[in-house]
Write a protein that binds this DNA or RNA. Structure first.
Length: 291
DNA sequence: AAGAGAGCCAACCGCCGATTG
DNA sequence: CCAATCGGCGGTTGGCTCTCT
């Protein structure tokens, strides 16, 4: 037997919201907040709506800073990579895309992105990679591509997949292999580095069961307001503003944390070499020898 | 121009886990 | 400890719009 309905369906309005209802709901929440009780909210706000309907309307449409409209290539990449690693956990995926709702992402995936992938139509800059593999691969840029541009995000926002740029090398990233690693072990991972080449590696995000494993800092800051930047900044934070891991010389200082247990921003950055990152995404990962 | 089909997306449904009394 | 309640989530649906024939 299912649970009782949350409201009297006979006495609540259903279907699309009118501008007047939107205004009422928004005005009420702006003034009083949700009060932690969606069920009681519609009555207080003077709405003949189910509390769940109010909640959905607020979260998916009325809430401030909601982003509507086309998804960017970068957002495509994040969705693809997270879907490959955790599946249809839309709320978790949405949490990585500020301004996007789980419903939006779900709709976008079901109506567009899935077809893009099936048809081999990756985000425009990454077609080559996805035509050969359902999983994104990691690209590594040579140091010159990092330091030569004041706007890191504009030059590297498309580096999650193989690129046709000659200076970019790609690494295969079989995301499903992460599931074999106990997330608790990953927190204390340490690596040394001997690599002589520099580079830049795409953002790395994955999950282990309910735990979110992430590399990089939560609020990376690698550029000053005038657009200038330094390698030192990159090294310190480990990632750029797009959560991409920065490699320079033979090191990348990145954070690695269990999202559910401790914010990754609280973890000390650890040194990883390019080789070690490669191993992260290759067979060593499957064998747990990374830890 | 009109009908059919496809695409899109807001909203609903029902289940699950957490919380509360 | 247990049942009731609620918030949150993912899957699904229905209706509107767009495109094609």
């Amino acid at each position: 037997m299912g649970r009782a309905p949350c409201c009297d369906k006979a006495n609540v309005k259903r279907g699309p919201w009118s501008p007047e209802e939107d205004a009422k709901l928004k005005e009420y929440i702006d003034k009083f907040g949700t009060g932690g009780n969606w069920i009681a909210l519609p009555q207080k706000a003077g709405l003949r709506r189910c509390g769940k309907s109010c909640r959905l309307r607020w979260l998916n449409y009325l809430r401030p800073n909601i982003k509507h409209g086309d998804f960017t290539d970068n957002e495509d990449r994040i969705i693809c990579s997270l879907f490959a690693s955790i599946g249809s956990r839309w709320s978790i995926i949405a949490a990585q895309l500020p301004g996007r709702t789980d419903n939006d992402i779900k709709n976008y995936w079901n109506t567009k992105l899935k077809k893009k992938l099936i048809m081999g139509m990756a985000p425009s800059s990454q077609k080559n990679s996805l035509q050969s593999s359902p999983f994104p691969s990691i690209s590594v840029l040579e140091p010159s591509s990092i330091t030569s541009s004041p706007s890191l995000s504009s030059t590297t926002s498309s580096n999650f997949y193989t690129s046709s740029t000659p200076s970019i090398r790609s690494l295969s990233a079989p995301y499903e292999t992460f599931s074999s690693i106990p997330s608790s072990l990953l927190i204390s991972t340490t690596c040394s580095s001997n690599l002589q080449e520099g580079g830049y590696i795409g953002s790395v995000q994955t999950y282990h069961q309910d735990s979110f494993l992430r590399f990089g800092s939560e609020a990376p800051s690698c550029s000053s307001s005038d657009g200038s930047s330094t390698n030192q900044n990159y090294l310190y934070n480990g990632v750029d503003e797009n959560q991409n891991i920065i490699f320079n010389n033979d090191h990348a200082n990145i954070r690695c944390a269990d999202y559910d247990q401790k914010p990754y921003g609280d973890q000390n950055p650890l040194d990883y070499s390019l080789e070690e990152i490669k191993q992260l995404f290759s067979t060593n990962l499957c064998n747990n020898s990374f830890v």
